[in-house]
Structure formats: structure tokens, C-alpha cells
Nucleic acid binder design. Sequence first.
DNA 1: GCCTGTGAATCCATTCACAGCT
DNA 2: AGCTGTGAATGGATTCACAGGC
Lengths: 211, 211
Amino acid sequence: MKRETRIPNATIERISLYSRPLEELLNKGIRVVSSEKLAELCKVNPAQVRKDLSYFGEFGVRGIGYAVKNLLSEIRKIIVSDREWKLAIVGLGNLGMALVRHDNFLKRGYRFVAAFDSSPRKIGEMIRSDLVVQPPSKIHLVISELGVEIGVISTPPSQSQAVADMLIEARIRAILNFSPIQVRHSGPCLVQNVDFTVRLDNLAYHLGQEG
Amino acid sequence: MKRETRIPNATIERISLYSRPLEELLNKGIRVVSSEKLAELCKVNPAQVRKDLSYFGEFGVRGIGYAVKNLLSEIRKIIVSDREWKLAIVGLGNLGMALVRHDNFLKRGYRFVAAFDSSPRKIGEMIRSDLVVQPPSKIHLVISELGVEIGVISTPPSQSQAVADMLIEARIRAILNFSPIQVRHSGPCLVQNVDFTVRLDNLAYHLGQEG
DNA sequence: GCCTGTGAATCCATTCACAGCT
DNA sequence: AGCTGTGAATGGATTCACAGGC
């Protein structure tokens, strides 16, 4: 172990990736997995798997492999997904609604506790038994009252910067941004961008190379 | 220029990123942009911008900067988004429907020309004036008849591998996978994965570090 | 014999710093 | 004077290869 060393960003991305097949193996009743098998399931190099895990501890047994259940629980401790995180969503168009209804979030401990939209038609709508759409003017109040930690932006791009500013103003700790523009953020707020079209552009580029 | 050199993967990701603010600058009527300004808008290093672009040609003018309109059109040629790509979507739950309706795709030249779902309730539904839901058994036929190039998977994870196999069987050239499992793919089919929860895990990890 | 954990070696990407053009 | 284009230098990440323990 070498917990002192700075942990590569790429390692953190992959750690979360490893947990997906581990869940499957656990469901299938498979008890032990080797770095080679896990690497194959995640399409990475076996040495990569071992090195990534070694940043956080010695979770394996030499000659045997990793205990699936134990490894999964260690990973959940590392990426702090052994507890619930509170999310707020802003922008309840097609994508926003789909995100709120998507059960993958809750399954991994991400719970939407507030929802905002500027459209008068949407405000007041009950989109889940415990989730009523509120106007953006309530963002500051609601975020601090409920202790929301992560804000999800799924507004049209023209509004996303203004929304980000409101979230930051309300002292939100992190933002997941689905709009195709980079959000400016000063200070301690973390931002992750998810832009589908960047992924498609990537595919298009490589297809174009093949001819 | 050094078109012979292998182009870093990271460069290709960023090239597509650069086009977003360029579109905005063009709309605002701004004619010229420096690497410094563009870098600021994309949150990268100015030298990075220059180097990335230099892999593909000499688009700038020393002492002046880059002509916005020209640079944008060059970038569109590089990532082959100066033409239309044909997409098929499989899985029309909340997320799938949101993707089909999301106008960002069409705006950038990605057009859904076919839609599949296994639910009898969905089959036959007209989700757009030119798009009727078909059963997965039609995948092979439709893909080859329409010449679909990219498949989008938004099924539940339990079905995603089977769907991927069908798409690959139908000789699709690339897959954009929204389900949280890595799709196995042999042969020449390209795959890109989009897993929202990996992004959230990343935020959670860093928030956990801060205490 | 088998599989982990890890220093050392390699590979790739970013940034610097300045020559070259307008 | 100003800003691009790019070799050279630095910094990170991946992979190798083998020692260490079951």
C-alpha cells in the first residue's frame, strides 16, 4: 500500500467502473475474481487493475485473487457510495424527466430531493410522490434547507450558466452538467460535464478515418 | 503541420469540445479568436489548443489568431460532422425517448432513422412523424436497408449485451452505449460508453476527500 | 503453481519557451 | 508588437516483469 502517493485521476474513474461487473459477479454467486478476469470484464489491462486497487490497500490474496464481496464493499467505501447523496435537478425537459425517473441513480445512492424548472406549466407538478417542481427563485432556500450536495443541470444551454451561478451562490458542492457548454465556476464547486455529442463526434471521427 | 504523426486520442476529444464555444462566437458576430481566448472558454491551456489544431493543419494567422468561421468549418471537416450520420436507437424507455427528442443530436448532424423496442406496448408507436417503433427482430433488416451507421443502446442493462450482439451481427459500424455495463465487441465495431453514475461517483469521491 | 503488489521502464500527453510570420 | 506553430522538457499514466506470499 502507498496511501501517501497522489492518486491518478484516471484511477478514480476506473475504480467506479470496476464496481459494475463486481455487482454482477456477486449476484451470480461468484466468490473470487482474479485481476485478469476483472480486467477482461472492464476491457483494461490486468496490471492496471492491480495497480489501481493497490493505491487504496491490499485487497487481494496472492495465489487466489480478490474476494468479490469484500472488494465491492471496499470500492464503495473509496468512492463514497456507501451512503446517500442528495441531488437537485434543474431543467425538467425530456432529458431532465428521464434522469429523475432513471432508477440507476437511486440504486447507487444518488437521490433527487428537489426539482426546479422555470416554465409556469411545470411549476407545481408532482413528478414523484415526494418531488414537486419548484421555481428557480427557490433554489437558494431549498438547497440550503435540505442540504443538497450535488446539482444536476439539464436546462437548454442558453440557461445553464445562469443556473450554475445560482447553484454556486447557494453553496452547492458539486455540479453535473448535461448541457453542451462548459460552465464557468469560481471557488470550491466541482463540475463534471456530460456531453453526448462529444462521444458521437468521437465515433464519427474514427468512422471517417476508416473511410 | 505534421499530418503523418499519430494523433493523440485526447486531442480528438478536445477538438470536438472546441467547436461548442466557436459556434457561440460565430453567432455573436465575433470574427477572430486567439488560442488564449478559446482556451479560456474550454478551460484548457492555450498551448494545448494550438498543438491540438496543429495536428490537422495551420489554421491560424501569426500575430492575429484564428478566423472563427474558418476554424469551425475546418473542425467540422476533421470530426466528420459536415455531413449527416444515420443512427438507430434501441430501448425507448424514459432515457431513450428523451434522446430521440433531444434536438442537440440533429443540430450536429446525428439523425435517428430507426427505433426499436421489445415491449409490445411500444411497437407500432409513432414517436416522431417519420419514426415508428419496430421490434428487435427487425434490427438486421432495417439497419442494412437504411444504411444505419451508429447504434444507440438505451435498454436496461440486462438486455444491452444481447442488443449489442444484434447490432454487430447487422454490421453496424459503431455503438453508443448508455447502459452501465461494458459491451463485449469483437471485430471492427467501435464502442463508446456513457455512464452517468461514473461521473457522479467521481464527484462523490472528491467531495468525500474534502470532508 | 498461481496470482497479487509494486519498482522500473515505457509510453503518452501537457506545458514551456522561443523561432517564425504578419 | 502580437500570436501562431512546434521542438524540447516535463509530467502523468500504463505496462512490464518479477519478487513475495498462498
